[in-house]
Design a protein around this nucleic acid. Sequence first.
DNA 1: GCAATTTCGTGATAATTTGCACAACACTTC
DNA 2: GAAGTGTTGTGCAAATTATCACGAAATTGC
Lengths: 206, 206
Amino acid sequence: MIAKDIPDIVVSRLPRYLQTLEHMQKDGIRTTSSQELGDLIGISAAQIRKDLSQFGEFGKQGKGYSVDFLVDQLRQILNVNRSWDIVLVGAGNLGHAIANYQGFGNHGFSIVMIFDSDPALIGQKIGNLTVQDAAQMVDLVRASGIKVGMITVPAQAAQAVADELVKAGIQAILNYAPINLTVPEGVHVQHVDPIIYLQRMTYYLA
Amino acid sequence: MIAKDIPDIVVSRLPRYLQTLEHMQKDGIRTTSSQELGDLIGISAAQIRKDLSQFGEFGKQGKGYSVDFLVDQLRQILNVNRSWDIVLVGAGNLGHAIANYQGFGNHGFSIVMIFDSDPALIGQKIGNLTVQDAAQMVDLVRASGIKVGMITVPAQAAQAVADELVKAGIQAILNYAPINLTVPEGVHVQHVDPIIYLQRMTYYLA
DNA sequence: GCAATTTCGTGATAATTTGCACAACACTTC
DNA sequence: GAAGTGTTGTGCAAATTATCACGAAATTGC
């Protein structure tokens, strides 16, 4: 695609740009500027211009950016102009809630397999999926070619699940377990942990 | 308490240190080093030492850090050596899942009020709480003195809810709605959005 | 058509953040 | 009790990240 020496921190901002631009799109806004976008997101206009300029020249002087065009470009850059199948491991309360969450589908993410090791959960229906036996996970996931996984098992089981997912060829893991995962180079992990976000704020509270 | 001007980025790492140290504590580990902690978290030993040194001298040369002591210090720094009451706004699927999530209690966070504007939800029981009418939220929250809120309403309602929470005296908001919130200076927001985390990873996938 | 205005893309500069390396100290071993 | 080893806290240097500010291009208004 494009030169791969783009800093992580730049990449990490792009989804927020895309999200905001998609809202604009829905509101019928056809054109925007780095200034307007920055005000909405709460960062400087210069930063947005510099970030985008890493990937190409998407704007027009005096005019700004076409919202539709920029959305399209960002989707290409982020590889979300396609759909991604996802495997979910852990069919407990949290797993259920996530499997039932409608927000993924609207953005091209689709949970297509759910696993658990608890016999009481295996065979259960969640939406139109059936919870499958975790013992078969590696084989089934590898055969499916799925590249993205989510972990919603208890902390003490999470690293073992991550290891299996890696073995199955998974390259990106969204981890809901409250523990740090160690994965090989080339596998990406993002950690979703509300406790950590709360503690980042309580620091500032009197 | 801590009068200094500590960079945000340092503060944002502390909860992860605390989490990891708490796991060590549970495993019966009494002493650790910046090296060991760094290996577990995946950051450099020097960074950990430098981060901690912003707040005091917690270690001993040649010996390392007492896990118990460091956990205690970090809890003090992060203001989590106490309990925090939380108001949850939005009693839909996501709100239900979060209200039922047991993980908060173990870390001193306790959801004590739930609001929604949907008459079909008001009056419903979730655990031992009853969903209350959002119209009364500002008064009830202000009277309660609660400082932390969570937003689990649809995107289009989130900013209005945030405005009300601010009016009610809330100073920290954990936002699950997929939209950027604008809040006055002094109010802290953390955004939990799985879509954004997924997109941060798909960028790197072939 | 031309001046005024807007806004981009970017090189230069400033600020922030990270990493290095070492003195100081503490424990261990012999 | 001295030598050896391990580990902290930190000044300084390096690397990274953000901001500034300006030329160039596009648009608007008269």
